[in-house]
């Protein structure tokens, strides 16, 4: 199993930390992982993206041009990465702020109202965990208990009291993702 994922959105949406939690959760499930932040001219203009690879084998290139799954959190990222999903791959997006919907017919497209659901939960900060839950529902590559372990390792100790809230957000994401 090798899952090559791009997570892309605005800076501040928790893109990089979602990727980090996903990578740590992968480690907890005895996977090989890599986390490569956008580190190019593309990061100018407030967009942030991270390539995460979770695999049973040693990860070769941490930098990729084609992905099994794209997690898209704004229009610019959709414009940029829709074409980079491998045929038969997955695209998960939050329709909030999206003006042109994805159009590809050769990939599986799912949506999650992450911003709305986070607002309903009364905590905008759990947005990225809702997205993570939605991702794990359509790509069940990591068990929930390992996500919880991943959180324990990636959050500083003082934030550990927030783990139940984060796991609740993961569940909300799992329950609300739908095929677009």
């Amino acid at each position: 199993m090798t899952e090559e994922i791009i997570i892309a959105g605005f800076g501040g949406q928790g893109v990089l930390s979602m990727g980090k939690i996903l990578a740590y959760s992968g480690i907890m499930q005895d996977k090989e992982v890599s986390w490569m932040p956008s580190y190019g001219p593309e990061m100018r203009g407030g967009t942030a993206n991270v390539t995460v690879i979770v695999s049973d084998e040693r990860v070769c290139s941490p930098i990729l041009n084609a992905f099994d799954t794209a997690v898209i959190l704004n229009q610019q990222s959709l414009d940029k990465f829709e074409s980079k999903v491998k045929p038969g791959g997955y695209l998960l997006y939050d329709p909030n702020g999206i003006t042109h919907n994805p159009t590809r017919k050769d990939i599986h497209i799912y949506s999650i109202e992450g911003a709305q659901l986070a607002s309903d939960m009364g905590n905008a900060k759990v947005f990225n965990m809702i997205i993570l839950g939605a991702f794990l529902k359509i790509r069940p590559i990591i068990d929930n208990k390992n996500v919880e372990e991943g959180l324990r390792h990636s959050l500083p100790e003082r934030a550990h009291k927030l783990i139940p809230l984060n796991m609740q957000a993961v569940q909300v994401g799992m329950d609300n993702v739908k095929e677009a």
């Binding site: 990578a23 090989e32 992982v33 890599s34 986390w35 490569m36 932040p37 580190y39 941490p62 930098i63």
Partner: peptide, 9 residues
């Protein structure tokens, strides 16, 4: 920069 900035196990 890539090896310095990336995270791995």
């Amino acid at each position: 920069g890539a090896i310095g900035q990336m995270m791995e196990k």
